[in-house]
Design a protein around this nucleic acid. Structure first.
Lengths: 208, 208
DNA sequence: GTCTATATCAGGATAGAC
DNA sequence: GTCTATCCTGATATAGAC
């Protein structure tokens, strides 16, 4: 009597995944309000009725998708925590490059950010899931690092962490999300080098 | 024969202003796609036909409104430029407070930012107008200030300006736009004090 | 459990009176 | 130049067959 009943689960995981994949493209490309169920259906290769059997309505589908995306990027900072023993310059450069690679270089992530920001009025829970899963781990990681390195003589480790992430976020938002490459141009490596140099510059005695 | 023809101008400025005021509320509250012409009409106290006589369609109305808002906030940094002679700590604190007062404390401006960010995919020109009119003047102002104060020994004035504005922007975005007051809390004055302290801390010789 | 076909409705845009 | 009344596209959501 192992599995005579097959009516326990009413939905096929396959179709669910197909719908979510179609929804991914559509919502990331057009935002919530302008997304069209028809196009999700077409991309997923299922019927409209199937969508509504798996998800109560457009809003639930959207929330399910976004929550999944947010938690998928959760492990983001785990590898950086492994490197707590490295020199500040090395460690910070590694963190910055990881951030930029995972965000600025991935159009899907950029679109994801745009949605989170744009729909933060209508879907505050989503914005908060984003902060909890992605923003907070990064801030915590860097705060702990700065705390563990008092020789940098930073007046406030948490503020230093916010300066680091804030500067990089501002860079990505203005350049990639707001299309500012021509308007307020700056070389990526120049920003990186001097951001790090400003934070780790010797505070009292040192060089000439 | 001074003005026998009265059909030179076809639109009344009064109604135009009324429509734009109604559109302001509606677009800022709901974003572009979810905004309803019906509600704009109701708020403006005009008929739907009037809207379409003054503006080609929803998109043109939206652009006109947003462009107007962007250029309205243009003078933002003018008063700060008058204070170039002040001490770094004083000057930077003044800049930061001006930014926060003009943005974080004004729900309408917050909504405006949310729209700009959210619709930056569909309306790239709008995002760029925002950068040109609001973001760039601020960066230029601070860059020039840091350039004029080499005693701070900042390795790169422009990067320092980006750190300053980036940190404050990140603060406002995470706290007010993404509803993060509970999730990644930080006292405003603590952030401000230590942001400034980190940038202006004596680089070589000084205190004990 | 998934499909086809359809109900239902709302929103953007316009025609014609005044 | 503005209003009232209306068109019509297109979108969400569902009913019923297989």
């Amino acid at each position: 009597m192992s599995s005579l009943r097959s009516s326990d689960r009413e939905l096929s995981p396959e179709k669910t995944a197909a719908v979510l994949d179609g929804a991914l493209q559509e919502f990331l490309a057009h935002g919530y309000a302008a997304a069209r169920i028809d196009r999700i259906v077409a991309a997923a290769g299922v019927s409209k009725a199937t969508v509504y059997r798996h998800f109560a309505d457009k809003e639930h589908l959207f929330m399910a998708l976004m929550q999944r995306l947010a938690s998928r990027k959760k492990l983001f900072w785990d590898e950086s925590i492994e490197r707590f023993e490295e020199e500040p310059t090395t460690f910070l450069r590694h963190c910055a490059l990881t951030m930029l690679e995972n965000v600025a270089d991935d159009p899907q992530v950029l679109a994801f950010f745009r949605i989170i920001l744009g729909e933060s009025g209508r879907f505050p829970q989503l914005a908060q899931a984003f902060l909890t899963n992605i923003e907070k781990p990064g801030l915590d990681c860097l705060t702990q690092y700065f705390q563990a390195h008092p020789e940098l003589q930073l007046p406030d480790p948490e503020v230093a962490a916010r300066m680091f992430i804030g500067t990089l976020t501002h860079f990505v938002v203005t350049r990639d999300i707001l299309h500012g490459r021509q308007i307020i141009p700056i070389d990526r490596d120049r920003l990186l080098d001097n951001l790090i140099a400003t934070l780790v510059r010797p505070a009292s005695s040192a060089s000439a």
